[in-house]
Simulated scan of single mutants.
Amino acid sequence: MGSLFEELEAREATAQARVEEIEAELAELSGKLELARESLARLRIARETVAEVLAEMTPEKSAVGVDDDWPTVGEPVASAYAGAERRVIGVLTVPKWRPGMGAEVLPRVYRDILEVVADAPGPVRAKQIVPRIGLPAETGKIEGTRSKLKRLVERGWLDEDTPGMFTSARRRGSDLPNSR
C-alpha cells in the first residue's frame, strides 16, 4: 500500500505545481489588465478633453472655397465605426510644400526630422534619425518616425529615392524651402 500513497503524493505535488503556475499567470495577467485599464482611462479623458475643447471652439467657414457637401469644423460626420460620431478637426499638420513655404509651418518633431536629414552627409534611415531627435531607439519609435518621414515625402518636404533612405527634397533654385 506504500506505493498508492506515494502515487497520490506525486499527483498532489503535480497539482500543487500547476496551481502555482496558474496563479503566477493570473498575477501577470492582472498586471497587464491594470495597465490596459489605465491606458483606457487616459484615452477616455483625452477624448473627453478634446470634445470639450472642440465644443468651445466656434466653427469658422472661409469665404473662399467652402463646399456645402463637405463637413465644417465641429460638424458631426458619418464614421466607419457603427453608431459612433467623429468630429472633423480640419487641421492638416503637415501641409503640402509650396515655393516660399518654410519649415516653421510644421510641428516641432517634423522640423527636427527635417533638420537631422538636412545635416546628414547622405541618405538616412528612420533608425538613424530616432536617437538624433531625442527618442529611444525602440521599434515603436522607429516605426512612428518612419511614418512621419513617409508623410514628409508625400507632401514634398523630403525625397525617398531608395526605399527607407530619406534625403532633403531636391528642388530648383528658388524652390528651396526655408528650413530655418
Rank of each mutant, 00 (worst) to 15 (best):
G74M: 00
G74P: 01
G74F: 03
E75N: 06
E75W: 09
E75G: 01
V77K: 09
V77T: 13
A78M: 14
A78S: 15
S79G: 10
S79Y: 07
S79I: 05
S79M: 07
A80K: 13
A80M: 14
A82F: 09
A82N: 09
A82V: 08
A82P: 09
G83T: 02
A84E: 10
A84D: 08
A84H: 09
E85H: 14
E85G: 08
R86E: 04
R87H: 09
R87V: 10
I89D: 11
I89G: 07
I89P: 00
G90D: 03
V91N: 12
V91I: 11
T93H: 15
T93I: 08
T93G: 11
T93E: 15
V94Q: 02
V94E: 07
P95G: 02
P95M: 07
W97C: 02
W97A: 03
R98T: 08
R98A: 10
P99F: 01
P99N: 04
G100D: 11
G100H: 05
G100Y: 06
M101A: 05
M101V: 06
A103S: 08
A103M: 06
E104V: 14
E104D: 15
E104M: 15
L106T: 01
L106Q: 04
P107N: 07
P107I: 07
R108Y: 11
R108D: 14
R108A: 13
V109H: 11
V109M: 11
V109P: 00
V109Y: 10
V109Q: 12
V109K: 13
Y110H: 12
R111T: 03
R111V: 02
R111Y: 03
R111I: 08
R111D: 08
R111G: 09
D112I: 03
D112M: 11
D112S: 12
D112L: 13
D112Q: 14
I113V: 09
I113H: 02
L114K: 00
E115G: 10
E115M: 13
E115L: 13
V117T: 11
V117R: 01
V117L: 00
A118N: 10
A118H: 00
D119T: 12
D119K: 15
A120Y: 03
A120Q: 06
P121L: 00
G122V: 05
G122F: 12
G122Q: 09
G122L: 01
G122H: 13
P123T: 06
P123L: 08
R125H: 06
R125V: 02
A126C: 05
